[in-house]
Design a protein around this nucleic acid. Sequence first.
DNA 1: CCCTCCTGGTGTACGCCGTACACCTGCCCT
DNA 2: AGGGCAGGTGTACGGCGTACACCAGGAGGG
Lengths: 234, 234
Amino acid sequence: MVEHTLRRTPLSRDRVLRAAVALADEAGIESLSMRNLAQELGVVPMALYKHVANKEELLDGMIDAVVGEIDPPVPGAGWKQAVRGRILSARRVLQRHPWAPIAIESRTAATPAVLAYLDSMVGTLSAGGFSADLAHHVMHAMGSRMLGFSQELFDASRNAGRSGAAAAEPPAAPPPEFADRFPHLATIATAAFHDDASVVGTGCDDQFEFEFALDLLLDGIERLHRQGWTSHPA
Amino acid sequence: MVEHTLRRTPLSRDRVLRAAVALADEAGIESLSMRNLAQELGVVPMALYKHVANKEELLDGMIDAVVGEIDPPVPGAGWKQAVRGRILSARRVLQRHPWAPIAIESRTAATPAVLAYLDSMVGTLSAGGFSADLAHHVMHAMGSRMLGFSQELFDASRNAGRSGAAAAEPPAAPPPEFADRFPHLATIATAAFHDDASVVGTGCDDQFEFEFALDLLLDGIERLHRQGWTSHPA
DNA sequence: CCCTCCTGGTGTACGCCGTACACCTGCCCT
DNA sequence: AGGGCAGGTGTACGGCGTACACCAGGAGGG
């Protein structure tokens, strides 16, 4: 029975969560089923339920795991650099786990790790002299961007298809009638000075666009903060 | 056989789509199954497949239907008012169809109506004197907010529970340990000057927060536009 | 006038999903 | 030695999307 006792390290909530994250990373969130996950762990599906209550809780655990990967705030910097740096770290994390945005958005309530992250973000703001009032609105305004979401309308990276980093197929040249039906989109798409201009949502430098929006927000926030904004601006 | 021939108006793609939207509106997107929808229409599930290719295409059709509800741009105004007004209209539409954000986000590619909407938005910008370059970044920066998404981290309105407008249960008072674990969040939550201060994500004036973020972006954009921003700012 | 074809609704069936529930096994503690 | 319990197992149920074969009944041509 040696083979039997050595066959595998016993399951644990942690091992389940880690395997789930790995599976979602490499096969896409849509192939994360309790059955697939169990198979991956060499175990029968129902065994998982001894370690997570149900699939919802499994997802919550996965989210907490990835949110925990986000860098802690750098201590020295001012609020703006601290917030900016942390959000960019969050973005890096989410890029390692492309399923996470969908998973987080689909949850209705926040998980502990997410709350802790947001709490620390608010802490950075108050340390920077923000009123609770302004900090509150800022948190809302940043919304899910706070967690590194690019929240594009069509997010190519969100395909979550199989094999994770598999070569995204060449953007499938825009059909010729595209320019006729959507002339303005065609204009800004072909005016995409970055590397290659192909179709909307591709040929863009995602990182640039993300920082563009982030800095637009941060600059606006800084301005409000400096002029001591309070609930009745104009 | 009169009863038979009169029994119902025949199905059509349009009737299917309309019924699907209605069902999702009142019962939540999670109870929109081909089977439920068929039952609602007094028809066997497979009958639907004579009018939509599959569930994906059904969702696309639904999205196009609701995006089509968004007001056309008001002709007289400047770009800023035009964009602002249209986005607020989009938001009103999405509030009538709380399932739509989830549905739109879950799609990987844009549908025709969405493209048309975005195209017209870009048109407004170029008419306002925006370079293709800046207009491009602006579209990215606005992201899904363009369609009226509030894109909060935890969006209470996104519960999509049964019976649509059913009374959201009283916010379930924040557990006492909340303030200990997340002191900063507790601060901005209880400092929620709006009507009632209860827990993060509630007791906030959603409309106010949406416009706050929207104007933060629009003001920043206006500033860039006025100073003739181009790809190399600082 | 009949026959044929086509459009659109039907019935059955398959393979996937999450998970309830009863069961069994082997270890730890007394 | 024996009892309890943590943790892995097997079976089963109801729901999902949808493939595929079928059939009714009206339209159109001979």
